[in-house]
């Protein structure tokens, strides 16, 4: 499927026009909100996963930490996707030819599927009934996939 026409359309859309022509709107509603949401998402991922690895908050049940962190994760993800679409629309054609943009989108897709199809169903019940090695594998994979989303995202800004 050829995606270039979609990216060309995105750049000429209302969102693309606003982002391209109003630098203040792009910087505040786009970049700043996106980075703050990324901080919340990264924080929620690290708190939950470091607890699953028994590194932090060992006096709080991991079920409680994972549930609370997931609530903030979902909020941050919605904000990240909204602000990210706005930001990408302004430079859509540049993004289309950027390898790190596609690496970030791939990592993001894997991360979302992993969280909602694997991690949450696994961690919904009591954690002491789950094989501790599986819990630790899931925590390390989660940290790595969201690190990849953040790192490739920042790399976009320093490439091309």
């Amino acid at each position: 499927m050829e995606l270039l026409p979609f990216f060309e359309w995105a750049e000429t859309s209302f969102l693309g026009y606003i982002g391209k022509n109003y630098g203040g709107v792009y910087a505040t509603f786009g970049q700043s909100v996106h980075l703050m949401a990324l901080a919340v998402l990264g924080g929620s991922v690290l708190i939950a996963d470091l607890r699953l690895l028994n590194i932090i908050l060992r006096d709080v049940p991991s079920e409680v930490v994972a549930d609370q962190a997931h609530k903030w994760f979902r909020i941050a993800l919605v904000v990240i996707l909204s602000s990210g679409i706005f930001m990408a629309a302004a430079v859509a054609q540049r993004m289309y030819y950027n390898d790190f943009f596609w690496a970030k989108m791939s990592a993001l897709l894997v991360g979302i599927i992993f969280v909602f199809a694997v991690k949450r169903p696994l961690l919904k019940g009591r954690h002491d009934e789950i094989n501790p090695i599986v819990i630790k594998l899931v925590a390390v994979a989660s940290i790595l996939v969201w690190f990849s989303v953040a790192a490739t995202g920042r790399w976009i800004g320093f490439s091309g």
Binding site: F114, V118, N131, V134, L137, V138, A141, L144, S148, A151
Partner: peptide
């Protein structure tokens, strides 16, 4: 729950290997 654990272990392993190779 056993199936979920197996799926979690395999997918987590695949993600870890892919991330290490990529980086």
């Amino acid at each position: 729950s056993g199936t979920i654990e197996k799926v979690a272990a395999v997918s987590a392993g695949a993600i870890i290997i892919s991330a290490v190779v990529y980086w």
